[in-house]
């Protein structure tokens, strides 16, 4: 029986029972998929931080509550900054597809300004809270709040550093294939951060004020 099967395989050796994946992949052909997998693992990091905030978000330790601290109009402005930066990055990608490096750089610069504005508003909000005594040490709510929102802010910071790097890259070497690939990775990263921010303003700020 086994010999017969073996022979059958020999004679019909073209029939494969696994994916014959031995063709050449071009350089960077799987970068975008790999970067997506990184983003998904980052998503799990944020899920854990959201869960922590969800558990501890009501433990004020007789300290300030979200209603005392959060300034919703300011959060709305902050949200719009990130949303504007998303669409301007989209415009940068569109110019990249048309191989117009200068216009791409212009949109990337606008995106950086919006991202910087977001960070500035967030940091001033943090500074204001800490000035009022609402430090991360004050209560479990504030510890988890600063960890979650701070981690997001840290991601935005690194996104801006990456953007500056790519501006220099494109400025010096033009829109090469490698630079286009990097720009698409950063595009995913940036839009992903906006997706996380939807969770933050819904779950932390709006639900917090509602609580």
């Amino acid at each position: 029986m086994t010999t017969m099967t073996a022979e059958a395989v020999k004679t019909e050796d073209k029939r494969l029972f696994y994916v014959a994946d031995e063709h050449e992949h071009g350089e960077g052909g799987s970068t975008l998929l790999g970067f997506w997998l990184y983003l998904m693992s980052d998503c799990l990091v944020f899920a854990v931080l959201f869960a922590t905030y969800g558990v501890l978000g009501g433990s004020y330790a007789a300290g300030p509550s979200p209603r005392d601290l959060f300034d919703l109009p300011l959060v709305a402005v902050n949200t719009s900054m990130l949303l504007f930066s998303s669409i301007t990055y989209g415009f940068a990608v569109l110019e990249m597809q048309k191989n117009r490096a200068n216009r791409m750089l212009l949109w990337l610069f606008v995106t950086m300004l919006f991202g910087g504005a977001f960070l500035g508003i967030e940091l001033s909000e943090f500074a204001h809270m800490i000035h009022e005594g609402a430090t991360p040490q004050r209560s479990a709510f504030l510890s988890s709040f600063f960890t979650l929102v701070g981690t997001h802010g840290l991601h935005v910071t690194f996104g801006i550093i990456w953007m500056i790097t790519l501006v220099i890259q494109v400025w010096k070497f033009g829109l090469s294939e490698a630079n286009k690939r990097r720009l698409l990775c950063l595009s995913m990263f940036w839009h992903f951060l906006d997706v996380v921010w939807i969770g933050v303003f819904t779950f932390v700020y709006l639900m917090g004020v509602l609580r």
């Binding site: 994946d21 071009g26 569109l94």
Partner: peptide, 17 residues
């Protein structure tokens, strides 16, 4: 962007924006 053609079925590539 991928450096290889779209002739094999398992890779539909990254959609154009």
């Amino acid at each position: 962007l991928h450096g290889h053609g779209g002739d094999h079925g398992h890779d539909a590539g990254h959609p154009e924006s």
